[in-house]
Simulated assay, not measured.
Amino acid sequence: MIALMLRILVWFLYNKVGLNLMPGLFSVMGYSWSHGSGIRLPGTFLDGFLLSYSLSKIRDNRLKHRRIYPYLICAGISLYYVYYVFNSRSQILCFLLVIMLSFAFVNNRIFSSLAKVLLLVLCCFFIAKIYLHTDFLQSVLNFYDPGTQVRFLGFDFYQSDWLNHKILGFGIVSDGNIFHTWYNSWIYYLSDLGIVNTLFQFGYVGLIILFSPFIFSFFIGLKNNRSLNGYFLMLSSFYTILSSIFFQNVYDSPRILIVPFILALMQLSMKDDKNNEERHFYNRV
Rank of each mutant, 00 (worst) to 15 (best):
I127L: 15
L19K: 03
R40Y: 06
A104Q: 12
F103Y: 14
M29I: 14
G38C: 11
G169C: 05
Y231W: 14
V150R: 01
H280E: 12
Y71S: 03
N184Q: 11
G30E: 03
I178C: 06
L242P: 00
Y31D: 13
N20C: 02
L268V: 05
R59D: 05
K116F: 13
L72M: 15
G48V: 05
S90A: 15
H280C: 09
D145A: 11
I208R: 08
L72G: 09
N142C: 08
I187A: 09
R109H: 15
V173D: 10
R226S: 14
F214V: 06
N20Y: 01
L13R: 00
S253C: 05
L210A: 14
M22D: 06
L228F: 13
V173S: 10
L242R: 01
S37T: 07
F261P: 01
F218R: 00
V28D: 11
D156E: 06
F157T: 02
I178E: 07
N15V: 04
V17K: 04
W162I: 08
P146G: 02
S217H: 02
R66Q: 11
R67C: 05
L50G: 08
M22L: 07
L122E: 08
D60F: 00
F202M: 14
D60T: 02
D161W: 12
T44V: 12
F202W: 08
I195N: 02
E278R: 05
N142S: 13
Y53C: 11
I2G: 03
G36C: 04
I2V: 12
G38N: 10
L21H: 00
H35P: 07
Q149D: 02
F200E: 05
F126V: 12
Y189C: 06
V285Q: 01
I8G: 04
F105D: 07
G30K: 13
I77P: 01
Y81H: 06
L228M: 11
S139D: 10
Y231F: 15
S185D: 13
Q138L: 07
G171R: 04
N283W: 04
M234Q: 06
F103G: 09
F155V: 05
M266E: 04
L153E: 05
L193G: 00
L153A: 08
N61S: 11
M1L: 13
S56E: 01
L55A: 07
P260Y: 04
Q248W: 12
K223S: 06
V259R: 01
L137V: 14
I68T: 09
N20A: 01
S191V: 09
S269E: 00
R284V: 09
G36P: 03
S78N: 08
I2W: 10
I209V: 15
A3E: 14
S32N: 10
I110S: 14
Q248H: 15
H180T: 03
T181R: 02
V28N: 12
F86G: 07
D252N: 13
V285W: 00
N276F: 00
N249C: 13
W162L: 11
K64P: 02
D175N: 09
L193Q: 07
I127A: 15
C94Y: 02
V285R: 01
L51V: 12
L72V: 14
Y131C: 09
G206S: 11
